Amino acid sequence: MYIGQAGIRKNGEGVLFRVVEHLKDEFYFTEAVMFTTSDNSWGPTEISYLENKFTNLAIRTGRYTVKNGNEPNPGNVTEEKEAELEVYIEQFKLMLGILGYKIFVPLVKTPEPVEEDREDRELMLTLTRKITRSHKVIEACCKQTDEGFVVLAGSQIEETDADSIPDTIKKLRARCRQNNEIKDGVLTKNYLFKSPSYAASFILGMTTNGKTDWKTADGVSLKTREERTYK
């Protein structure tokens, strides 16, 4: 994803013209969302502030690769103007979510105190496995969320690929190493997978059954837990 800004130019062109310009660049995109004011009340300082905030929010969330080459200048807004712009930021985040874009939605929730009578919907799981081909013991953690299985940053990743590894997983692992998202055998960012087996295969570098690999804190496998739930 790319986050940018545009003001009215001397030729009268503005945001839409800037989007069309990107079509001539190497940067490829399929969808664009534009936020504008009805009265052009924001100047370069306000727009730069918003661009900086949105870019940093997207980077921290970590759902997408942010293509911005440099960190945008935050500008020099007053405290009063900053408070006003923060309200707009929350509104924009809400609107993006309604439109189905989870650009600023964290993959996992920020840990909060859990009441004793309320079950946490995000299930923490661990995986421990000794790899025969490398003789290493791999340990990883993930959270099962409403969206799938999020392998957490800090998890160990087996660096060698087995012959049986799915091609999609092999390419993802290679891309992560190239982007330093796997560094010295450790994952440096959260990664979302739709199935427990793909999450486990990504970690172990081979085809595997994630429902037996992933276990709860008390050592119960996902497979056993699901069987107990549906009995």
Rank of each mutant, 00 (worst) to 15 (best):
N73M: 01
N73F: 12
N73G: 02
N73R: 07
P74H: 06
P74A: 09
P74Y: 04
P74M: 07
G75C: 07
G75Y: 02
G75F: 04
N76Q: 10
N76G: 04
V77E: 04
V77R: 02
T78D: 10
T78A: 09
T78F: 02
T78S: 15
T78N: 06
T78V: 01
E79T: 10
E79R: 13
E79S: 14
E79L: 12
E79I: 07
E79W: 00
E80K: 11
E80P: 00
E80A: 11
K81D: 08
K81G: 01
K81H: 03
K81M: 10
E82P: 02
E82Y: 02
E82N: 08
E82M: 07
A83T: 10
A83S: 13
A83F: 01
A83N: 09
E84N: 09
E84D: 10
E84Y: 12
E84M: 11
L85P: 08
L85F: 05
L85N: 05
L85M: 11
E86M: 12
E86I: 12
V87A: 07
Y88K: 14
Y88N: 10
I89V: 15
I89H: 02
E90H: 09
E90C: 04
E90R: 14
E90T: 15
E90A: 15
Q91D: 10
Q91K: 15
F92M: 15
F92Y: 09
F92L: 10
K93E: 08
K93R: 14
K93L: 07
K93N: 12
K93M: 13
L94C: 03
L94S: 12
L94N: 10
M95L: 14
M95Y: 02
L96D: 03
L96N: 01
L96R: 01
L96I: 04
L96T: 02
L96F: 05
G97S: 08
G97H: 01
G97C: 00
G97A: 02
G97V: 00
I98Q: 04
I98P: 00
L99T: 00
L99Y: 04
L99V: 03
G100N: 03
G100T: 03
Y101C: 04
Y101K: 06
K102G: 05
K102W: 01
K102T: 13
K102A: 09
K102R: 11
K102Y: 08
I103A: 05
I103V: 15
I103W: 11
F104C: 09
F104Y: 14
F104T: 08
P106G: 07
P106F: 06
L107K: 13
L107G: 05
V108P: 01
V108T: 15
V108C: 04
K109S: 15
T110M: 08
T110H: 07
T110Y: 08
T110D: 10
T110F: 09
P111E: 06
P111N: 04
E112W: 00
E112N: 08
E112T: 13
E112M: 10
E112P: 00
P113K: 12
P113L: 13
V114E: 14
V114I: 15
V114T: 14
V114H: 11
V114N: 13
E115C: 03
E115D: 13
E115I: 01
E116C: 06
E116L: 14
D117E: 09
R118G: 00
R118S: 07
E119Q: 12
E119Y: 06
D120V: 12
D120N: 14
D120A: 12
R121H: 09
E122F: 07
E122Q: 15
E122L: 09
